[in-house]
Write a protein that binds this DNA or RNA. Structure first.
Lengths: 219, 219
DNA sequence: CAGTTTTTGGCACTCACTGTCATGATGGCA
DNA sequence: TGCCATCATGACAGTGAGTGCCAAAAACTG
């Protein structure tokens, strides 16, 4: 039940020490990433239809067209199968934050965060369904929390770099935790409003939450 | 792997609709609470000695002097066994916050939070050992995150009451999430400093983190 | 003390997950 | 194009976490 998440191709990626001088070919890796995402989609579909408890790992594997053994190689638990969908928003948020010039206000990099992060419509709709499952599914909620917790480290470094503070210091860590929590709430608001009203309302809710949170944070 | 945590005696407690007119006698409940805590202590000890993965539920049960079947009735997973220790600080923090007059600054209710929450020395030292396990034990970290997530709801209501805001509104929720995250970081700092230096240093670190965080929050 | 409810334990069972090995697909290179 | 090294996949068997069910024991009520 340990949850040591192994990013696909991490070993290969770190072996390639340049842009791609002699690393693993991207074909295989891209296929693996596709498989990961396909599993995630099927898992969300099955979880939404029958609930997490009533969905076995074997069913997910069958739906994704792979053997159970392979499923457990891709993900360490059936709940973790949804991680690729949950993390996509935070990853782009971190990337945009890193690319944001130090002078600009924080929310510029974030206000388009989660919603537009999922450029592909299928990802976005799956993410929407998934977040709506969270209140009723403790196991998935745990993944959601873990994903955000993993993002904290990244945010801490980005914030430390932006504010010129010590990355191991207390202040950037506190700010990262707060920002991270705000993004979680914003994403939940986004999902709720998107489902209640429409996509525009969801995006607006997300932006409002982020703005509300960041203006008091001074990052 | 569902994590529906059932507080001990909840059913009995809600049946007793007065201070205790005809509810369950407190003896049984107290004994159950003691059993819960005893299990938690043994679990932490075993986890610290051999690691979570190498500790079986059966071992925890044997150490606590109960049958495995009973252990699984008390806790839904072996990791959850440590929850009573992890939640003690947040519970007292919430209680003190509730009792804090509306005018007083927030940190007055919190600065003595986690450390002194564990009045009993054994609880405090077990909690210390436990928090130090978190970085290496993803399963326990997940419990830590879940405990904090559960506390969010409580904090949201307390904050809404203090600030006169709508408890379902965005602002109190954001503030609760931020406060909660700050308390988590503060507790981790407390554990680190307590272990590196001494108890006083730990308490001081906790207070510093809480102060740092609350002064920007306007609760 | 007798009757009822609650808690515990024992047993059997499911299924999430893992170690191991054989097989097949893929990419590198002559 | 064909051979070799590498790695992904699958089949199989095994462990152990967690659950349902029923009986025994304990606690509470009168």
């Amino acid at each position: 039940m340990d949850i040591t998440v192994e990013q696909p191709g991490t070993r290969d990626a770190e072996r390639a020490d340049g842009p791609r001088p002699s690393g693993r070919p991207p074909l295989t890796e891209r296929r693996k990433a596709e498989t990961r995402l396909a599993i995630a989609h099927e898992a969300v579909r099955l979880f939404a239809e029958h609930g997490v408890a009533a969905t076995s790992g074997e069913e997910i594997a069958r739906a994704a067209g792979i053997s159970p053994r392979t499923l457990w190689r891709y993900f360490p638990s059936k709940e973790e199968c949804v991680r690729p969908l949950l993390s996509v928003g935070l990853e782009t948020a971190a990337r945009r934050l890193r690319e944001l010039p130090a002078g600009r206000p924080l929310w510029e990099g974030l206000q388009a965060g989660v919603p537009s992060a999922a450029e592909r419509a299928d990802v976005s709709s799956a993410l929407l369904r998934l977040i709506r499952l969270l209140p009723d599914e403790p196991g998935l909620r745990a993944v959601w929390l873990r994903v955000h917790h993993d993002a904290e480290r990244v945010f801490t470094e980005v914030i430390a770099a932006r504010t010129g503070a010590d990355p191991d210091g207390l202040v950037p860590r506190l700010k990262a935790v707060m920002l991270n929590g705000a993004l979680r709430v914003a994403a939940e608001e986004w999902a709720r409003r998107s489902a209640e009203a429409d996509q525009a309302a969801g995006d607006e809710a997300f932006r409002r939450a982020v703005l509300q949170a960041t203006e008091s944070l001074d990052i």
